[in-house]
Amino acid sequence: MPAPISIIIPAYNAQANLPDCLASLMPGLEGGLIREVILVDGGSDDHTTKIAESTGANILIAPEKGRSAQLRHGADHARGDWLLFLHADTTLSPEWVERTSAHITERPNKAAAFTLAFRSDHPMAKTVARRANWRSRVLGLPYGDQGLLVSRTLYDQVGGFPDVPLMEDVELVRAIGKKRLSILSAEARTDASKYERDGWRKRSWHNASLITRYLLGASPEKLAKHYT
Rank of each mutant, 00 (worst) to 15 (best):
P2Q: 13
P2H: 08
A3W: 01
P4S: 05
I5E: 07
S6K: 12
S6D: 00
I8G: 12
I9P: 07
P10A: 04
A11W: 00
A11F: 02
A14M: 11
Q15H: 12
N17D: 13
L18G: 04
L18P: 10
L18S: 07
P19G: 12
D20E: 15
L25C: 02
M26I: 15
L29E: 08
L29S: 12
L33W: 03
I34F: 12
I34S: 03
R35C: 13
G42N: 15
G42E: 13
G43E: 06
D46Q: 07
T48K: 11
K50I: 10
E53G: 10
E53P: 10
S54Y: 01
T55S: 15
N58C: 13
L60A: 10
I61P: 01
A62E: 10
G66D: 09
G66Y: 06
G66F: 01
R67P: 09
S68W: 03
R72N: 15
R72I: 11
A75Y: 09
D76T: 11
A78C: 07
G80A: 08
D81H: 02
H87D: 12
D89I: 08
L92R: 09
W96Q: 04
W96Y: 03
E98D: 15
T100L: 04
A102H: 10
A102W: 11
H103W: 05
I104S: 14
I104L: 15
T105Y: 11
E106G: 08
E106F: 08
R107H: 15
R107S: 15
P108D: 11
K110N: 13
A113L: 06
F114G: 02
T115C: 08
T115G: 13
A117I: 00
S120Y: 08
S120Q: 05
D121V: 12
H122D: 04
M124V: 03
A125G: 05
T127S: 10
R131K: 12
R135Q: 01
R135L: 00
S136Y: 04
S136H: 02
R137S: 10
G140C: 00
L141W: 06
P142T: 06
Y143N: 11
D145T: 00
G147K: 09
L148V: 03
L148R: 04
L149C: 01
S151Y: 07
T153V: 11
D156V: 05
G159R: 06
G160H: 09
D163S: 13
P165T: 08
M167G: 11
V170P: 04
V170I: 15
E171A: 14
E171Y: 14
L172I: 00
V173K: 04
R174K: 13
K178M: 02
S182I: 01
I183R: 12
E187K: 15
A188I: 06
T190V: 13
A192Y: 13
A192R: 12
A192M: 08
Y195G: 07
R197N: 09
R197W: 10
G199V: 00
R201C: 03
K202P: 03
H206S: 02
N207G: 14
A208I: 05
L210E: 01
T212C: 10
R213V: 05
R213L: 14
L215V: 03
L215D: 00
L216P: 06
G217I: 13
G217K: 14
A218L: 07
A218I: 02
K222P: 06
K222D: 14
K225S: 10
H226P: 02
Y227S: 10
Y227E: 14
T228V: 12
